[in-house]
Computed example of a mutant assay.
Amino acid sequence: MSPNWTAESVPSQQGRTVVITGANSGIGWETATVLAARGASVVLAVRDVDKGKQAAARITAASPGAHVTVQRLDLASLASVRAAAEELRADHPTIDLLINNAGVSHIPREITVDGFERQFATNHLGHFALTGLLLEAMLPVRGSRAVTVSAIAHRTPNGIDFDDLRRERSYNAMAVYGQSKLANLMFTHELQRRLSGGDTTIAVAAHPGLARTDLSRNASLSQRALFKALSPLLQSAAMGALPVLRAATDPDVRGGQYYGPGGSRPREARGYPTLAESSPASHDVAGQRRLWAVSEELTGVLFPV
């Protein structure tokens, strides 16, 4: 048996209901494909329903009999998040896995319909709200997990700039992306602390390393040139999905853990999934609690824990 954790290591998911955001391409689609093949009932929660249906068709073509549905979800709109959560709860009284995967990066400054900077809104606030609204459907399910996908970029910032969340004073797309990915980890750690009194649901995080996805499609010309130069270091989206799959399905995973590629050249960029250590800033308890309070205030979502 291979010592590496691979897609073949994923145990049976028969009878489990999985919601994956941003699952029409890249890491999300690869994750959905494996889970559906293992028997899970998979919901692709996507902004573009037509692309979601095409993605679902590709999955069922590869795994005839797989149960895959599509849910419209625009994480940059709190109204859309609430509507999607209501429909998901109606269709699925219990949810075993929520994988917060969708994200945007390297985009020009943009303000959402709710008045938030788009990267922070999509990558963090939308997922914060969705998790809070779906948690009641997860808490009764033994072994349920909320898995949030972060990134190597979370290591760049030293903390969250709470005084300029709209980025009105300055805007650097890569720096703002890094803060949103740091927020993903701080959210995971604080959620796990709040869940620790129970014995069913856990919060876990993962990152794909440097993988070939379309996440940089909105990057500037100079940034795209940088990604092209880095292309020899990139691993496939299927390999990038393995840390997410491990965080979501490995029975040995514990709450608050963080998984990523275990390769050393360059560190965390490539390789099979293993336990990773997030940055010191992600473990700042005061920062975690402040982020939680700010997120509750901005989204209007209160968690049942």
Rank of each mutant, 00 (worst) to 15 (best):
38 R>T: 06
28 G>L: 03
77 S>W: 10
35 L>D: 01
41 S>E: 10
237 A>Q: 02
263 G>T: 09
157 P>H: 05
236 S>E: 10
207 H>C: 03
211 A>I: 06
290 R>A: 09
195 L>M: 03
229 A>I: 13
151 A>C: 10
111 I>Y: 00
111 I>V: 15
247 A>L: 14
246 R>L: 11
179 Q>K: 11
72 R>Q: 15
67 H>T: 15
145 R>Q: 07
75 L>I: 13
219 A>Y: 08
92 H>A: 05
54 Q>D: 14
104 V>E: 02
15 G>L: 03
176 V>W: 06
159 G>A: 08
297 E>M: 07
4 N>C: 08
4 N>P: 00
46 V>R: 07
150 S>M: 04
284 D>V: 00
82 R>W: 07
300 G>Q: 04
84 A>L: 09
53 K>E: 15
143 G>Q: 01
166 R>Y: 10
36 A>S: 12
302 L>F: 03
9 S>Q: 06
81 V>E: 07
209 G>L: 06
2 S>Q: 09
283 H>V: 00
20 I>L: 06
102 A>D: 03
100 N>D: 11
199 D>M: 02
223 Q>K: 10
1 M>W: 14
76 A>G: 13
92 H>F: 13
179 Q>I: 02
165 L>R: 02
167 R>F: 07
22 G>E: 03
238 A>T: 14
133 L>E: 02
285 V>Q: 12
234 L>S: 10
208 P>D: 06
170 S>Y: 13
146 A>Q: 13
98 L>W: 04
152 I>K: 10
262 G>R: 14
2 S>C: 03
229 A>V: 14
119 Q>Y: 02
170 S>G: 14
61 A>K: 14
113 V>E: 15
160 I>H: 10
221 L>E: 14
91 D>A: 15
288 Q>H: 04
224 R>M: 04
204 V>M: 03
129 A>K: 05
304 P>L: 09
234 L>D: 05
263 G>Q: 09
102 A>Q: 07
301 V>W: 07
72 R>C: 03
233 L>N: 12
250 D>Q: 10
43 V>A: 04
259 Y>W: 14
30 E>A: 14
260 G>K: 08
196 S>I: 01
224 R>T: 06
119 Q>P: 01
248 A>G: 06
155 R>I: 12
49 V>D: 06
42 V>A: 00
68 V>I: 06
235 Q>F: 00
93 P>T: 01
286 A>Q: 11
288 Q>S: 04
185 L>R: 08
293 A>N: 12
157 P>Y: 04
261 P>G: 08
172 N>R: 13
74 D>F: 09
163 D>V: 03
227 F>M: 12
272 Y>A: 08
8 E>F: 11
66 A>F: 02
279 S>R: 03
81 V>A: 01
